[in-house]
Amino acid sequence: MSPSKRADEAQGFYTGNQRIAGAFLAAALTVSLLSGCKFFKSGPETFSARLEISPVVGDQPFQLDDGSGAVSYRTASGDQFSATRLRYYLSNFRLRRADGSFYQAPLDAKSSEGYFLVDVAVPASQTFKFIDAPAGDYSGVEFLVGVDDARNSAGVQTGALDPARGMFWTWRTGYIFLSLEGQSPQSSAPQHALTFHVGGGGKDSLARQVYLPVGETPLHVRANIEPLIHLHMDVAALFHAAHDIRLAETNTVMDSAQGAVIADNAASMFRIDHIHNEPRKASHAP
């Protein structure tokens, strides 16, 4: 078969298929337009809530270093460290209702909505709409630091979970849940490098669940209120929260045994600094 003929066939297949796809699209569009009206919606109407994350070390703001070591911090044990890169996944957000039950937005296996890749170098990635929930008062927020097992072992994903984002192991299947790269004078690795790549699924998954109560005033999710949770992520907690880490011994972490130690610490990095129950901006109104 000649190349051009084969190309023609492929083209023919495509146009035929496209016509069908077009019909489907039109149908889908109609349905989604209709379902946009409250009347056709099956579940209760939902409204967004936002999250803003500020990286800190103790009570000072945390900044990435440019590789020169100019911006450095100390761990609780006195080791010095600087980080040129700090990225992590947050997912599976749930809100706690007054009665103790949780609301979790449904996940769609075909999209990576609900999975967030936070990159300390990219301010926009540190503030996002983390959930759409029914109107109500919520007393706490729960989430995973990492990616749940189902998605961690599924086929190739898009968006925040696109393996091209550089948070996917290349020699085995699965995501790197948290990655910190930098330097420490105490590190015995070449160039005093600090490399924490934490991730791994299966029965000993390194994804860690975090629950944070919002305090006295609950989160008001309303048609006219868009609540904002302001989180602090304490980078120093990575080295001593659950397990004390000395950078002379622990400086290159790739496997799941050492990774578990860092993952436990990572779960303790987050705390709620404050919340706002702000009037929803006009553009968000339904």
Partner: peptide
């Protein structure tokens, strides 16, 4: 067996 999905 490090890889467990053909797509990846």
């Amino acid at each position: 067996g490090a890889v467990h999905n053909l797509e990846l």
